[in-house]
């Protein structure tokens, strides 16, 4: 998405009537939880609204950062071993 910075005019001409509603729908869409009507509304709207398309782009980047940048702690091997031993003991007692 490019913007003509010299003219300082918004690229998109139809800003939201209800930005808070748009954000709700946008999150449902990214989470894969939106219904057909919400998807249809948003796909039409996002092409025309700069605020929403930017919001969408940042939200996606945040989701991606959570998936990629968060350190994944792994369960210690001794814990796994201990659990296996306890389970075996309990089924054999």
């Amino acid at each position: 998405m490019k913007i003509n910075k010299e003219k300082k005019e918004p690229m998109k001409e139809k800003p939201c009537e209800d930005h808070e509603y748009c954000i709700k729908v946008l999150n449902l869409i990214i989470d894969g939880e939106a219904n057909e009507a919400e998807v249809l509304f948003f796909n039409t709207h996002i092409k025309e609204c700069l605020a929403c398309s930017e919001y969408y782009s940042i939200e996606q980047a945040i989701r991606e950062a959570i998936k990629k940048k968060l350190e994944k702690k792994e369960a210690p091997a001794d814990l796994i071993q201990e659990l296996r031993t306890k389970v075996k003991e309990s089924t054999r007692s």
């Binding site: 998405m1 490019k2 930005h19 808070e20 700069l50 782009s57 980047a61 959570i66 940048k69």
Partner: peptide, 27 residues
């Protein structure tokens, strides 16, 4: 306040670049 849109592409790109570093602390 929440309704004020972010208005430049440059800023969006900058935020996207930087959030990776800070996401864990923020979360």
């Amino acid at each position: 306040e929440i309704d004020q849109p972010i208005t430049s592409d440059l800023r969006v790109e900058a935020i996207k670049e930087k959030i990776g570093d800070e996401v864990s602390v923020a979360l």
